[in-house]
Design a protein around this nucleic acid. Structure first.
Lengths: 209, 209
DNA sequence: TTATGTGAACCGGTTCACAGCT
DNA sequence: AGCTGTGAACCGGTTCACATAA
Protein backbone atom coordinates (compact mmCIF):
# COMPACT_ATOMS: atom_id res chain seq x y z
CA UNK A 1 0.00 0.00 0.00
CA UNK A 2 1.10 3.54 -0.62
CA UNK A 3 1.29 5.70 2.48
CA UNK A 4 0.77 9.45 2.18
CA UNK A 5 3.52 11.88 3.05
CA UNK A 6 1.23 13.50 5.64
CA UNK A 7 0.96 10.23 7.51
CA UNK A 8 4.75 9.89 7.67
CA UNK A 9 5.12 13.48 8.87
CA UNK A 10 2.58 12.80 11.61
CA UNK A 11 4.34 9.60 12.67
CA UNK A 12 7.43 11.71 13.37
CA UNK A 13 5.31 14.00 15.50
CA UNK A 14 3.72 11.13 17.42
CA UNK A 15 7.17 9.76 18.12
CA UNK A 16 8.35 13.08 19.52
CA UNK A 17 5.25 13.39 21.71
CA UNK A 18 5.67 9.82 22.96
CA UNK A 19 9.15 10.72 24.17
CA UNK A 20 7.71 13.60 26.16
CA UNK A 21 4.99 11.38 27.57
CA UNK A 22 7.55 8.78 28.56
CA UNK A 23 9.58 11.39 30.42
CA UNK A 24 6.46 12.18 32.42
CA UNK A 25 6.54 8.61 33.66
CA UNK A 26 3.44 7.33 31.88
CA UNK A 27 3.48 3.76 30.66
CA UNK A 28 0.35 3.81 28.50
CA UNK A 29 -1.45 6.41 26.39
CA UNK A 30 -4.85 6.56 24.80
CA UNK A 31 -5.17 7.63 21.19
CA UNK A 32 -7.08 10.69 22.35
CA UNK A 33 -4.28 11.95 24.63
CA UNK A 34 -1.51 11.36 22.13
CA UNK A 35 -3.61 12.90 19.37
CA UNK A 36 -4.39 15.98 21.41
CA UNK A 37 -0.69 16.58 22.09
CA UNK A 38 0.07 16.09 18.40
CA UNK A 39 -2.65 18.49 17.26
CA UNK A 40 -4.65 15.90 15.34
CA UNK A 41 -7.95 14.08 15.81
CA UNK A 42 -7.84 10.74 17.61
CA UNK A 43 -9.36 8.95 14.63
CA UNK A 44 -6.64 10.36 12.44
CA UNK A 45 -3.98 8.94 14.72
CA UNK A 46 -5.60 5.51 14.82
CA UNK A 47 -6.04 5.49 11.06
CA UNK A 48 -2.37 6.42 10.56
CA UNK A 49 -1.27 3.54 12.77
CA UNK A 50 -3.71 1.11 11.17
CA UNK A 51 -1.84 1.31 7.86
CA UNK A 52 1.03 -0.49 9.56
CA UNK A 53 -0.67 -2.83 12.00
CA UNK A 54 -2.59 -2.80 15.27
CA UNK A 55 -0.36 -1.71 18.10
CA UNK A 56 -2.87 -0.97 20.85
CA UNK A 57 -5.05 -2.87 23.28
CA UNK A 58 -8.80 -2.24 23.05
CA UNK A 59 -10.15 -0.80 26.20
CA UNK A 60 -6.68 0.10 27.43
CA UNK A 61 -4.65 2.12 24.96
CA UNK A 62 -1.06 1.87 23.78
CA UNK A 63 2.08 0.95 25.66
CA UNK A 64 4.31 4.03 25.38
CA UNK A 65 7.50 2.01 24.97
CA UNK A 66 6.00 -0.43 22.54
CA UNK A 67 4.40 2.19 20.33
CA UNK A 68 7.62 4.24 20.30
CA UNK A 69 9.65 1.35 19.06
CA UNK A 70 7.00 0.36 16.52
CA UNK A 71 6.93 3.87 15.04
CA UNK A 72 10.73 4.06 15.16
CA UNK A 73 10.88 0.87 13.18
CA UNK A 74 8.36 2.12 10.61
CA UNK A 75 10.45 5.26 10.10
CA UNK A 76 13.58 3.16 9.73
CA UNK A 77 15.09 4.46 12.98
CA UNK A 78 15.81 0.98 14.34
CA UNK A 79 19.22 1.09 12.72
CA UNK A 80 22.02 3.64 12.49
CA UNK A 81 22.06 6.09 9.58
CA UNK A 82 25.33 7.69 8.59
CA UNK A 83 25.21 11.16 7.09
CA UNK A 84 27.71 13.58 5.58
CA UNK A 85 27.19 17.27 6.21
CA UNK A 86 28.05 19.62 3.35
CA UNK A 87 28.66 23.20 4.45
CA UNK A 88 30.28 24.28 7.71
CA UNK A 89 28.73 27.72 7.93
CA UNK A 90 26.49 28.68 10.81
CA UNK A 91 23.65 26.50 9.53
CA UNK A 92 25.97 23.55 9.14
CA UNK A 93 27.27 24.08 12.66
CA UNK A 94 23.74 24.23 13.98
CA UNK A 95 22.91 20.93 12.31
CA UNK A 96 26.15 19.34 13.51
CA UNK A 97 25.22 20.22 17.07
CA UNK A 98 21.58 19.24 16.88
CA UNK A 99 20.79 16.77 19.67
CA UNK A 100 17.73 15.32 17.99
CA UNK A 101 19.79 13.38 15.48
CA UNK A 102 21.78 11.15 17.77
CA UNK A 103 18.61 10.44 19.70
CA UNK A 104 17.09 9.02 16.53
CA UNK A 105 20.10 7.05 15.36
CA UNK A 106 21.26 9.57 12.77
CA UNK A 107 25.01 10.14 12.93
CA UNK A 108 26.96 12.81 11.12
CA UNK A 109 30.21 11.08 10.19
CA UNK A 110 31.95 13.72 8.07
CA UNK A 111 31.80 17.46 7.43
CA UNK A 112 32.78 18.87 4.05
CA UNK A 113 33.40 22.53 3.19
CA UNK A 114 35.01 23.93 0.08
CA UNK A 115 36.38 27.02 1.89
CA UNK A 116 40.15 26.35 2.31
CA UNK A 117 40.40 28.71 5.30
CA UNK A 118 38.11 26.36 7.24
CA UNK A 119 40.15 23.30 6.44
CA UNK A 120 41.38 21.23 9.40
CA UNK A 121 39.24 23.18 11.84
CA UNK A 122 37.07 20.97 14.01
CA UNK A 123 33.33 20.95 14.70
CA UNK A 124 32.80 18.81 17.75
CA UNK A 125 34.98 15.78 17.18
CA UNK A 126 34.92 15.98 13.38
CA UNK A 127 37.45 17.79 11.19
CA UNK A 128 36.25 19.95 8.30
CA UNK A 129 37.45 18.30 5.10
CA UNK A 130 37.45 19.52 1.54
CA UNK A 131 35.63 17.63 -1.18
CA UNK A 132 38.18 16.15 -3.51
CA UNK A 133 36.68 12.78 -4.37
CA UNK A 134 33.18 12.42 -3.03
CA UNK A 135 32.72 8.85 -4.13
CA UNK A 136 35.70 7.45 -2.25
CA UNK A 137 34.97 9.72 0.70
CA UNK A 138 31.43 8.35 0.85
CA UNK A 139 32.65 4.79 0.74
CA UNK A 140 35.29 5.50 3.37
CA UNK A 141 32.78 6.80 5.90
CA UNK A 142 29.99 4.44 4.71
CA UNK A 143 27.33 7.16 4.53
CA UNK A 144 24.03 7.01 2.67
CA UNK A 145 22.59 10.43 3.49
CA UNK A 146 23.89 13.84 2.40
CA UNK A 147 22.87 17.01 4.23
CA UNK A 148 23.16 20.15 2.10
CA UNK A 149 23.77 23.32 4.11
CA UNK A 150 25.70 25.36 1.55
CA UNK A 151 24.62 28.67 -0.05
CA UNK A 152 21.98 28.42 -2.75
CA UNK A 153 24.40 29.22 -5.56
CA UNK A 154 26.50 26.16 -4.80
CA UNK A 155 23.70 23.71 -4.06
CA UNK A 156 22.62 22.63 -7.55
CA UNK A 157 26.10 21.63 -8.70
CA UNK A 158 26.83 19.99 -5.38
CA UNK A 159 23.66 17.92 -5.56
CA UNK A 160 24.76 16.46 -8.90
CA UNK A 161 28.10 15.44 -7.42
CA UNK A 162 26.33 13.96 -4.43
CA UNK A 163 24.09 11.84 -6.64
CA UNK A 164 27.07 10.75 -8.73
CA UNK A 165 28.92 9.78 -5.56
CA UNK A 166 26.18 7.31 -4.78
CA UNK A 167 24.32 8.87 -1.86
CA UNK A 168 20.79 7.54 -1.72
CA UNK A 169 19.16 10.26 0.39
CA UNK A 170 19.45 14.05 0.53
CA UNK A 171 18.19 16.54 3.09
CA UNK A 172 18.39 19.98 1.51
CA UNK A 173 18.49 23.24 3.45
CA UNK A 174 19.61 25.42 0.54
CA UNK A 175 16.86 27.68 -0.85
CA UNK A 176 16.73 26.05 -4.29
CA UNK A 177 14.69 23.19 -5.70
CA UNK A 178 16.97 20.31 -6.56
CA UNK A 179 16.34 17.87 -9.38
CA UNK A 180 17.48 14.36 -8.52
CA UNK A 181 16.77 10.95 -10.03
CA UNK A 182 13.64 9.28 -8.63
CA UNK A 183 15.60 6.59 -6.80
CA UNK A 184 17.22 9.25 -4.59
CA UNK A 185 15.12 10.22 -1.57
CA UNK A 186 14.94 14.00 -1.25
CA UNK A 187 13.45 16.22 1.43
CA UNK A 188 13.75 20.00 1.38
CA UNK A 189 13.52 22.37 4.32
CA UNK A 190 12.80 25.89 3.15
CA UNK A 191 13.28 28.62 5.74
CA UNK A 192 11.69 31.32 3.62
CA UNK A 193 8.45 29.37 3.33
CA UNK A 194 8.12 29.33 7.10
CA UNK A 195 8.37 33.10 7.37
CA UNK A 196 6.19 33.83 4.39
CA UNK A 197 3.47 31.61 5.76
CA UNK A 198 3.43 33.74 8.90
CA UNK A 199 3.45 37.07 7.05
CA UNK A 200 0.56 35.78 4.92
CA UNK A 201 -1.48 34.79 7.95
CA UNK A 202 -0.82 38.12 9.64
CA UNK A 203 -1.74 40.02 6.50
CA UNK A 204 -5.05 38.16 6.18
CA UNK A 205 -5.91 38.73 9.81
CA UNK A 206 -5.32 42.46 9.57
CA UNK A 207 -7.62 42.82 6.60
CA UNK A 208 -10.69 41.51 8.47
CA UNK A 209 -10.26 41.39 12.23
CA UNK B 1 -12.74 32.54 0.48
CA UNK B 2 -10.49 30.27 2.51
CA UNK B 3 -7.16 29.48 0.87
CA UNK B 4 -5.46 26.18 1.68
CA UNK B 5 -2.07 26.09 3.37
CA UNK B 6 -0.67 24.14 0.43
CA UNK B 7 -1.52 26.96 -1.92
CA UNK B 8 0.34 29.47 0.25
CA UNK B 9 3.36 27.19 0.49
CA UNK B 10 3.41 26.89 -3.29
CA UNK B 11 3.12 30.66 -3.74
CA UNK B 12 6.38 30.98 -1.79
CA UNK B 13 7.97 28.48 -4.13
CA UNK B 14 6.70 30.25 -7.24
CA UNK B 15 8.14 33.49 -5.93
CA UNK B 16 11.56 31.92 -5.39
CA UNK B 17 11.53 30.41 -8.89
CA UNK B 18 10.47 33.73 -10.41
CA UNK B 19 13.54 35.34 -8.88
CA UNK B 20 15.74 32.76 -10.55
CA UNK B 21 13.96 33.24 -13.85
CA UNK B 22 14.38 36.97 -13.61
CA UNK B 23 18.12 36.59 -13.06
CA UNK B 24 18.26 34.64 -16.30
CA UNK B 25 17.00 37.75 -18.05
CA UNK B 26 13.55 36.50 -18.98
CA UNK B 27 10.71 39.00 -18.96
CA UNK B 28 7.79 36.62 -19.32
CA UNK B 29 7.02 33.04 -18.25
CA UNK B 30 4.36 30.56 -19.17
CA UNK B 31 2.53 28.69 -16.45
CA UNK B 32 4.06 25.48 -17.78
CA UNK B 33 7.68 26.68 -17.39
CA UNK B 34 7.16 28.15 -13.95
CA UNK B 35 5.22 25.07 -12.87
CA UNK B 36 7.90 22.71 -14.09
CA UNK B 37 10.56 24.57 -12.11
CA UNK B 38 8.33 24.51 -9.06
CA UNK B 39 7.61 20.78 -9.35
CA UNK B 40 3.86 21.18 -9.82
CA UNK B 41 1.42 20.79 -12.69
CA UNK B 42 0.67 23.87 -14.77
CA UNK B 43 -3.03 23.68 -13.98
CA UNK B 44 -2.20 23.63 -10.30
CA UNK B 45 -0.23 26.84 -10.66
CA UNK B 46 -2.97 28.57 -12.60
CA UNK B 47 -5.60 27.42 -10.12
CA UNK B 48 -3.49 28.71 -7.21
CA UNK B 49 -3.20 32.12 -8.84
CA UNK B 50 -6.87 32.21 -9.81
CA UNK B 51 -7.88 32.36 -6.15
CA UNK B 52 -6.37 35.84 -6.04
CA UNK B 53 -7.06 37.23 -9.51
CA UNK B 54 -5.97 36.89 -13.12
CA UNK B 55 -2.39 37.99 -13.53
CA UNK B 56 -1.50 36.61 -16.95
CA UNK B 57 -2.16 37.40 -20.59
CA UNK B 58 -3.83 34.66 -22.64
CA UNK B 59 -1.63 33.43 -25.42
CA UNK B 60 1.40 35.10 -23.89
CA UNK B 61 2.01 34.14 -20.30
CA UNK B 62 2.93 36.17 -17.24
CA UNK B 63 5.22 39.17 -16.85
CA UNK B 64 7.96 38.02 -14.48
CA UNK B 65 8.16 41.34 -12.67
CA UNK B 66 4.43 41.80 -12.43
CA UNK B 67 3.73 38.28 -11.17
CA UNK B 68 6.56 38.56 -8.61
CA UNK B 69 5.14 41.69 -7.13
CA UNK B 70 1.58 40.31 -7.18
CA UNK B 71 2.64 37.20 -5.27
CA UNK B 72 4.78 39.28 -2.90
CA UNK B 73 1.75 41.37 -2.14
CA UNK B 74 -0.45 38.30 -1.54
CA UNK B 75 2.12 36.96 0.93
CA UNK B 76 2.27 40.33 2.67
CA UNK B 77 5.86 40.99 1.57
CA UNK B 78 5.07 44.42 0.16
CA UNK B 79 5.86 45.92 3.53
CA UNK B 80 8.62 45.52 6.09
CA UNK B 81 8.21 42.93 8.85
CA UNK B 82 10.20 43.35 12.03
CA UNK B 83 11.20 40.21 13.90
CA UNK B 84 12.94 39.43 17.19
CA UNK B 85 15.21 36.40 17.29
CA UNK B 86 15.21 34.38 20.51
CA UNK B 87 18.29 32.22 20.95
CA UNK B 88 21.81 33.13 19.84
CA UNK B 89 23.16 29.59 19.52
CA UNK B 90 24.37 28.26 16.23
CA UNK B 91 20.85 27.96 14.85
CA UNK B 92 20.08 31.52 15.88
CA UNK B 93 23.27 32.74 14.25
CA UNK B 94 22.39 30.86 11.08
CA UNK B 95 19.00 32.54 10.99
CA UNK B 96 20.49 35.96 11.77
CA UNK B 97 22.78 35.61 8.78
CA UNK B 98 20.22 34.18 6.36
CA UNK B 99 20.14 36.32 3.21
CA UNK B 100 16.66 35.25 2.15
CA UNK B 101 15.02 37.35 4.83
CA UNK B 102 16.20 40.80 3.86
CA UNK B 103 15.38 39.97 0.26
CA UNK B 104 11.76 39.44 1.30
CA UNK B 105 11.44 42.42 3.59
CA UNK B 106 11.86 40.51 6.82
CA UNK B 107 14.21 42.29 9.23
CA UNK B 108 15.60 40.92 12.45
CA UNK B 109 15.68 43.92 14.75
CA UNK B 110 16.77 42.37 18.06
CA UNK B 111 18.44 39.24 19.36
CA UNK B 112 17.65 37.87 22.80
CA UNK B 113 19.52 35.20 24.72
CA UNK B 114 19.22 34.30 28.36
CA UNK B 115 22.84 33.13 28.65
CA UNK B 116 24.68 35.93 30.54
CA UNK B 117 28.06 34.98 29.06
CA UNK B 118 26.75 35.93 25.62
CA UNK B 119 25.51 39.30 26.76
CA UNK B 120 26.81 42.32 24.87
CA UNK B 121 28.37 40.17 22.16
CA UNK B 122 27.32 41.15 18.67
CA UNK B 123 25.84 39.15 15.79
CA UNK B 124 26.27 41.25 12.69
CA UNK B 125 25.26 44.73 13.76
CA UNK B 126 22.95 43.64 16.58
CA UNK B 127 23.89 43.16 20.23
CA UNK B 128 22.72 40.10 22.13
CA UNK B 129 20.37 41.31 24.84
CA UNK B 130 18.80 39.51 27.75
CA UNK B 131 15.07 39.25 28.15
CA UNK B 132 14.06 41.34 31.11
CA UNK B 133 10.79 42.88 29.96
CA UNK B 134 9.61 41.41 26.67
CA UNK B 135 6.61 43.66 26.34
CA UNK B 136 8.51 46.92 26.48
CA UNK B 137 11.32 45.45 24.39
CA UNK B 138 8.81 44.49 21.72
CA UNK B 139 7.29 47.94 21.71
CA UNK B 140 10.71 49.59 21.61
CA UNK B 141 11.80 47.72 18.48
CA UNK B 142 8.25 47.65 17.02
CA UNK B 143 8.34 43.95 16.16
CA UNK B 144 5.40 41.67 15.41
CA UNK B 145 7.15 38.39 14.73
CA UNK B 146 9.11 36.22 17.17
CA UNK B 147 11.57 33.61 15.97
CA UNK B 148 12.20 30.83 18.47
CA UNK B 149 15.63 29.21 18.16
CA UNK B 150 16.18 28.13 21.74
CA UNK B 151 16.54 24.55 23.05
CA UNK B 152 13.35 22.55 23.30
CA UNK B 153 13.26 22.63 27.11
CA UNK B 154 13.03 26.42 27.12
CA UNK B 155 10.64 26.89 24.22
CA UNK B 156 7.26 26.24 25.82
CA UNK B 157 7.74 28.76 28.63
CA UNK B 158 9.27 31.28 26.25
CA UNK B 159 6.32 30.99 23.88
CA UNK B 160 3.94 31.95 26.68
CA UNK B 161 5.98 35.04 27.45
CA UNK B 162 6.11 35.90 23.77
CA UNK B 163 2.34 35.71 23.46
CA UNK B 164 1.93 37.79 26.63
CA UNK B 165 4.31 40.38 25.22
CA UNK B 166 1.94 40.90 22.30
CA UNK B 167 3.76 39.30 19.38
CA UNK B 168 1.26 38.32 16.71
CA UNK B 169 3.33 35.77 14.79
CA UNK B 170 5.78 33.03 15.81
CA UNK B 171 8.19 30.97 13.73
CA UNK B 172 9.28 28.04 15.85
CA UNK B 173 12.46 26.04 15.28
CA UNK B 174 12.45 24.29 18.66
CA UNK B 175 11.48 20.62 18.50
CA UNK B 176 8.30 20.96 20.55
CA UNK B 177 4.69 21.64 19.60
CA UNK B 178 3.65 25.00 20.98
CA UNK B 179 0.13 25.86 22.07
CA UNK B 180 -0.78 29.44 21.30
CA UNK B 181 -4.09 31.32 21.13
CA UNK B 182 -5.77 31.12 17.71
CA UNK B 183 -5.16 34.79 16.96
CA UNK B 184 -1.40 34.22 17.00
CA UNK B 185 0.01 32.96 13.67
CA UNK B 186 2.30 30.01 14.25
CA UNK B 187 4.52 28.07 11.88
CA UNK B 188 6.83 25.29 13.02
CA UNK B 189 9.95 24.05 11.29
CA UNK B 190 10.89 20.60 12.55
CA UNK B 191 14.37 19.40 11.61
CA UNK B 192 13.80 15.86 12.81
CA UNK B 193 10.81 15.42 10.51
CA UNK B 194 12.99 16.17 7.52
CA UNK B 195 15.48 13.48 8.39
CA UNK B 196 12.91 10.91 9.39
CA UNK B 197 11.10 11.37 6.11
CA UNK B 198 14.29 10.46 4.30
CA UNK B 199 15.06 7.44 6.48
CA UNK B 200 11.50 6.25 5.91
CA UNK B 201 11.79 6.57 2.14
CA UNK B 202 15.13 4.77 2.13
CA UNK B 203 13.78 2.01 4.32
CA UNK B 204 10.80 1.44 1.99
CA UNK B 205 12.99 1.37 -1.09
CA UNK B 206 15.29 -1.22 0.35
CA UNK B 207 12.44 -3.55 1.18
CA UNK B 208 11.28 -3.84 -2.44
CA UNK B 209 13.74 -2.56 -5.03
C1' DT C 1 -2.33 28.95 -32.64
C1' DT C 2 -0.89 29.63 -28.08
C1' DA C 3 -1.65 30.08 -23.39
C1' DT C 4 -4.66 31.64 -19.44
C1' DG C 5 -8.80 31.08 -16.39
C1' DT C 6 -12.27 28.14 -14.35
C1' DG C 7 -16.51 25.13 -13.55
C1' DA C 8 -16.94 20.24 -13.19
C1' DA C 9 -15.19 15.67 -12.36
C1' DC C 10 -12.15 13.13 -9.89
C1' DC C 11 -9.49 11.28 -6.28
C1' DG C 12 -7.37 10.66 -2.02
C1' DG C 13 -7.02 12.01 2.67
C1' DT C 14 -9.95 12.86 6.73
C1' DT C 15 -13.80 12.00 9.54
C1' DC C 16 -17.68 9.26 10.99
C1' DA C 17 -20.05 5.47 12.85
C1' DC C 18 -19.84 1.39 14.63
C1' DA C 19 -17.94 -3.30 15.03
C1' DG C 20 -14.65 -5.82 17.84
C1' DC C 21 -11.76 -6.79 21.94
C1' DT C 22 -10.58 -6.69 26.83
C1' DA D 1 -17.93 0.19 30.01
C1' DG D 2 -13.81 1.74 27.66
C1' DC D 3 -10.90 2.27 23.88
C1' DT D 4 -9.01 0.46 19.51
C1' DG D 5 -9.52 -0.79 14.56
C1' DT D 6 -11.70 0.04 10.14
C1' DG D 7 -15.12 0.08 6.14
C1' DA D 8 -17.97 3.71 4.44
C1' DA D 9 -19.22 8.50 3.86
C1' DC D 10 -17.59 12.86 3.32
C1' DC D 11 -15.02 16.73 1.90
C1' DG D 12 -11.62 19.48 -0.08
C1' DG D 13 -7.67 19.79 -2.96
C1' DT D 14 -6.07 18.41 -7.62
C1' DT D 15 -6.77 17.49 -12.31
C1' DC D 16 -9.44 17.71 -16.50
C1' DA D 17 -11.76 19.76 -20.30
C1' DC D 18 -12.88 23.53 -22.45
C1' DA D 19 -14.32 28.37 -22.88
C1' DT D 20 -11.87 32.65 -23.55
C1' DA D 21 -8.66 36.01 -25.06
C1' DA D 22 -4.42 37.72 -27.70
Amino acid sequence: MNISASTIRRLSIYLRQLEGIKEEGRETVSSSLLAERSDVKATQLRKDLSYFGSFGVRGLGYSVDDLSSKISKILGLDREWRAVLFGAGSLGQALAGYKGFSKHNIRIVAIIDSDPTKKSKMIGSLPIEDASDLKSMRQRVRAEIAVIAVPGEAATALAEQIVAAGFSGIVNFAPVRLKVPPQVALYAVDLAIAFENVTYLLTCKKEKP
